[in-house]
Amino acid sequence: MSPDLILPYEGVLPDFASRPVWCGRGSTVIGAARIGAQAWIGDDGVIRADGQSVTVGERFWLGPRSTVHIATFTHGTVCGDRVTVGRNSVVHACTVGSDVVIEDDVVILDGATIGDGVVIEAGTTVFPRASLESGFVYGGSPAKSRRPIDRAGVAERAERLRESMSDNPPSPAPEPHEADETVFVARTARLRGRVGLGAGASVLFSCALDAEVGPIVVGADTNIQDNTVIRTRGEGVVIGRDTTIGHNVRVSDSRIGARCLIGIGAAVAPGTVIADEVMLAAGATTDPGQLLEGGHLWGGRPARILGPLDAEKRAMMARIVEGYCRHGREYRVAQVEAE
């Protein structure tokens, strides 16, 4: 069984040591990814190696709506053997040892190193460049050691997590969506209802945009990254231009300004208003009705001001937008050629 969508990046296709044991609906593998034997990729699982490589060992399990990605200019991602990733988690530009369990809703960020025989509990955020020592259970945001665990304990946690993922209900099939020729909508993305996409916008792999109640309006050159879910239940969602919505973000009825970055695994609660030029850190959450003033880095649960949005951060945000505009053009061509 093969992933639902396989695409090259700069002419390089993924390399599978053997045919995966299972690949669910919407599963996607892209670019310079090396996948070990006996892999299991759940519905909407995304492995994207576009700019750096991704290497995963034998018996790698990737849960439904989870994402493995790289940092384009700095870090690839490496996972050892017998790594189990739960639902809606992100493994991003990091190094993960063997016999590791990454439970549901975990975010592992750039440059982090995870030792062998580790369990990362559900909802944990592993901060950039963190080092998690072998043989412990970790939890919290940022991740901290909770207690020691032996290999038998890790194997038991892995088995329980894998069994629960096997029972996950299947994702619905994507529906066709007409868009401007400058827009990229991944074939595995699902758009429903009144979704408007500005010129140059990108909706990446396995995203779900549900606008059957209120509308979703996305500004020009804005990118919505893999496995993000935007769902309206009232007035709708408006996102300004030149904004990045990171992997596995959750957005409810809200307003997000122009030139913003919403970090990996963040959650934007109903009624939130985010001004122009805001960075919301990975794993952060907002309170219902919260106002995030422009010109600041916000983070935490709930979000609070962590510091000014300095010139370096603004330049980084602009580079991401430029890079995803380029990705959108490249993926639009690659997806057509793959059909």
Rank of each mutant, 00 (worst) to 15 (best):
I230M: 14
R190W: 10
P169L: 08
V238G: 10
L161M: 06
R147M: 14
D221G: 05
R231F: 02
T244C: 00
P148V: 09
P176E: 07
G200A: 03
D180W: 06
V126F: 03
L197G: 04
N223I: 05
P128A: 05
I216L: 02
P148G: 06
L197E: 00
R146E: 09
G153E: 01
I108T: 04
M165E: 13
T188F: 14
T182F: 00
G246D: 00
S134L: 02
G198D: 01
E235T: 13
F205C: 01
P142E: 00
S145H: 08
P172E: 07
P142F: 05
D167I: 08
A220F: 10
V126E: 07
D116R: 12
H247R: 09
A201S: 15
T232F: 06
D150N: 02
L209A: 03
G240P: 12
G214D: 06
G139E: 10
P148L: 07
S145R: 14
V106L: 14
V185E: 11
R147D: 12
T228Y: 08
D210T: 11
P169W: 04
P172M: 06
T125F: 03
R160G: 00
D180L: 06
G198A: 04
G111A: 09
V119T: 14
N168F: 15
T182S: 04
D226V: 09
L109K: 11
V213R: 12
G214P: 10
G219S: 00
D104H: 08
A186N: 12
E103I: 03
G198V: 06
L209H: 01
D116W: 00
V100R: 11
R231A: 03
M165W: 04
D226A: 05
A143F: 06
G234P: 01
R146N: 03
R157P: 07
Q225D: 08
R160S: 04
V154W: 07
P148Y: 08
T232H: 02
L161I: 04
N227R: 14
L132S: 10
A208T: 12
V229M: 13
I245Y: 08
F136A: 05
A152P: 01
N248H: 00
G198C: 01
A201N: 05
A143R: 01
A122C: 03
